[in-house]
């Protein structure tokens, strides 16, 4: 017990002295609690935050929660104890954040939520939330497709996992735009669970059911992976993806950029992993006295088409 307390005391001493030093140097210290590293997208998200911090000479304290909220809460409490200047959280789940955020507020440390949402009754517990708007992603894709086909298109849809927010909202945004074009409609729709193999399997059946695909004008997939599987199915059916059947999706993974560069896919909206920059911007503004910050900052990515695909693919694979 005693040893533990002693160790704790030393730790606090070391921390406070290092803190004193850092505050003397006036470098901003920011704690970042990340979900984990479960996907390629997540890894590039973490990498981008670290790079951005290094470029801005921010002292970034990075904590990987390994998909567990309890680890995140512990990390945030650690940040508060270290008296960091600001905290960024990419939450694992939406609920259960109020107590620890209240502690941060009491310590007057601003908290920025990135990527996934949090459910709170009290908006004052965090500074702002920076995330992509799934509905807007769906709208962007639909607008591009309607422009390309003059609003006359028979679409097959590969949905994401049933019940996933990304799937529900992307479909909502897409259908909103589609409603303005009476000649365009979704003729078949089925879930392919966000995976490549299911995308291929479901597309195969769609092609058979629609006279070998001759009735289909475009494929709309809720993520790139499903579209990549479907592209193979279209090729195996003897059609040209990207020409005979237009292919549009969301995410912007490198493989999809390659498919676009090869002319086999048409467009995607990037789910931007570079959330570090906007988060640091907003924190800098707040620390410099700007108290008028919106509670939600929309960071929906750009739409990419075949024109820039080759260059973008180069950029993404060289990194």
């Amino acid at each position: 017990m005693k040893i533990k307390r002693l160790l704790g005391a030393t730790a606090v001493l070391v921390l406070s002295s290092s803190l004193a030093l850092s505050s003397l140097a006036r470098a901003t210290t920011i704690g970042f609690s990340q979900v984990g590293s479960e996907s390629g997208w997540r890894s590039s998200f973490s990498e981008s935050v670290k790079q951005e911090a290094a470029a801005r000479k921010i002292d970034l304290k990075f904590a990987d929660a390994q998909q567990k909220q309890e680890n995140q809460i512990r990390a945030v409490r650690g940040f508060i104890a270290q008296r960091v200047d600001a905290i960024i959280i990419a939450p694992v789940v939406e609920t259960g954040w109020a107590p620890v955020l209240r502690e941060a507020k009491r310590a007057r440390i601003p908290v920025v939520i990135v990527d996934r949402n949090v459910q709170l009754n009290d908006d004052s517990l965090f500074l702002t939330r920076i995330a992509s708007d799934f509905t807007e992603e769906g709208r962007k894709v639909a607008r591009w497709l309607m422009q390309k086909t003059d609003g006359n298109c028979a679409i097959v849809e590969l949905q994401g996992t049933v019940g996933a927010t990304a799937a529900i909202d992307r479909a909502k945004g897409f259908n909103e735009v589609l409603a303005e074009y009476p000649a365009a409609k979704i003729i078949r729709s089925q879930t392919a669970e966000f995976t490549r193999s299911k995308g291929k399997e479901v597309m195969e059946s769609f092609l058979k059911a629609e006279q070998g695909g001759r009735n289909i004008c475009a494929l709309w997939a809720h993520n790139d992976e499903m579209a990549l599987g479907a592209i193979q199915a279209i090729k195996e059916a003897g059609l040209k993806p990207g020409q005979d059947i237009l292919v549009v999706a969301v995410d912007g993974v490198p493989d999809y950029f390659k498919a676009m560069a090869d002319g086999e896919a048409n467009a995607t909206v990037e789910l931007d992993p570079h959330l570090g920059g906007p988060a640091f911007d907003v924190i800098a503004a707040y620390l410099n006295g700007d108290k008028d910050i919106a509670k939600y900052i929309n960071n929906t990515g750009e739409l990419f088409s075949q024109d820039t695909a080759a260059a973008e693919y180069q950029k993404r694979t060289n990194k």
Binding site: E38, S39, E193, T195, R196, S197, K200, Q232
Partner: peptide, 9 residues
């Protein structure tokens, strides 16, 4: 079949 290995799925 998908010319790739997707360990998650």
């Amino acid at each position: 079949d998908i010319q790739g290995s997707d360990a998650n799925n």
